[in-house]
Write a protein that binds this DNA or RNA. Structure first.
Lengths: 234, 234
DNA sequence: TAAATTAAATGTCAGTTTTACATTTATTAT
DNA sequence: ATAATAAATGTAAAACTGACATTTAATTTA
């Protein structure tokens, strides 16, 4: 069959907003850009989509290249295509975001890229429209986490309630009452208490919990209404 | 500066999921595809992104071409890029969705395209992955409408509570108790009662309301929790 | 012009959820 | 044994939700 011969073709990139939680703070993985323009400036990890490679596939490849990690939580965020966004040549970029548990993966980052974890709240200026992508990722994370249990992707398989609460507090940049937090989170039926305590951070120790996979789906919607006013926080 | 010379370039399209409400039913605007492959089959309205044209801009152009309408509610939905999705040549498509008030715009559809409004619930089979796009648009509409007052984009400037309720019922494919519906919707503070009635559809007549622009922003979050269990419905 | 008809508007009560707030408990260190 | 630390837990008032039936405004018909 004939091609759509009269149309212009464009470069397509994927850019990954890689977020991680180390038990205390939300972090973002950035790389020092290796090519001009803006060489040496900080940037999201990205790459061009290859022939015969889907978008999700490209994003996963890029993430694997940088972190060595496969099968982590990743979802498409938004596509950015303003004509001037990359000064070299017009490129449409599909942004993805990824959630990682930083305590588990003491990931040895690829040396090929100069990558570094930064506090999400206080990261260096980014090239092109990457800052916009990060802001959108933050919004979407809050938005989605108010309705779905995605924040568990940022935690180890077992975690304590204080850890979970810290994570929520980091994401929403606010503080919750721990009595109410615990009651609400337990009322979702998503968590299973383990007979084991985490004793590093306190004398008494806090019980570990894990996601109850059996109830995971049935109670998925229960996390709804978790955050009192998600939109006030955006 | 040099181009990223070794990379492959791709066609980029936008496809629009155009939804409208006529006061009773949710509809979708489809066109009969004019070129091979799949000529004569039903399809979303789309078009290729042009040089020096942003993605949003392209989507607006495509909508304007088909409907003559400008400045309507439109938001980017998702990008689709599976290698085989268009059999002629690999094309990445950025899907957008649009909400229209069909009572206001007795839009004269462009004759250049054979376009027709179908019931969203019962539309013909679509080409390529367009069905997937429509399904995603339906999900997102429900999802978003449970948190944000976007459904007003589907109504005229003034509307009655029964009309508003019908719209919600169409979108969520469910029935609401009108006493509770009215109480909840009024509690958002978003609506302003007008001193005027709609008398077509009943003897008593129903008061018109409009969005209270002053309170629109302040009470934006109040619509939150509007739909009891948005996720059960997805 | 009174009565019937139609759909809109409105109220209540019980059950549940939310919020605000302080004490007790388990463990380790002194 | 006592002190120190952070985890775990309870309660009561207020707000919200869900289920449910009656009243009201206007038109049509007898």
């Amino acid at each position: 069959m004939n091609k759509y011969s009269k149309q212009t073709r464009f470069l397509i990139a994927v850019d990954c907003i890689i977020l991680g939680f180390d038990g205390a703070e939300l972090k973002i993985l950035l790389i020092k850009r290796g090519l001009e323009p803006e060489q040496g400036k900080w940037s999201l990890m990205g790459g061009f989509v290859q022939p015969n490679e889907g978008l999700d596939e490209a994003a996963n490849r890029v993430l694997l290249q940088l972190t060595g990690l496969d099968k982590v939580y990743m979802e498409q965020l938004h596509s950015f295509g303003e004509p001037g966004r990359d000064p070299i040549e017009r490129t449409i970029s599909v942004a993805y975001f990824t959630l990682l548990d930083l305590t588990k993966y003491k990931t040895q980052l690829s040396q090929e890229f100069e990558a570094e974890w930064f506090l999400l709240k206080k990261h260096p200026k980014l090239i092109f429209d990457h800052e916009q992508m990060v802001q959108l990722a933050k919004s979407k994370l809050r938005y989605k986490a108010s309705l779905h249990p995605i924040l568990f992707e940022l935690l180890a398989d077992k975690f304590t309630l204080p850890q979970l609460q810290s994570l929520f507090e980091e994401v929403y940049e606010t503080a919750f009452d721990k009595r109410n937090f615990s009651r609400k989170i337990m009322s979702t039926g998503l968590l299973l208490k383990l007979n084991e305590k985490e004793k590093e951070s306190s004398k008494k120790g806090a019980y570990y919990y894990k996601l109850d996979k059996k109830h995971y789906k049935a109670n998925f919607h229960n996390i709804l209404r978790f955050i009192p006013n998600p939109n006030e926080l955006l």
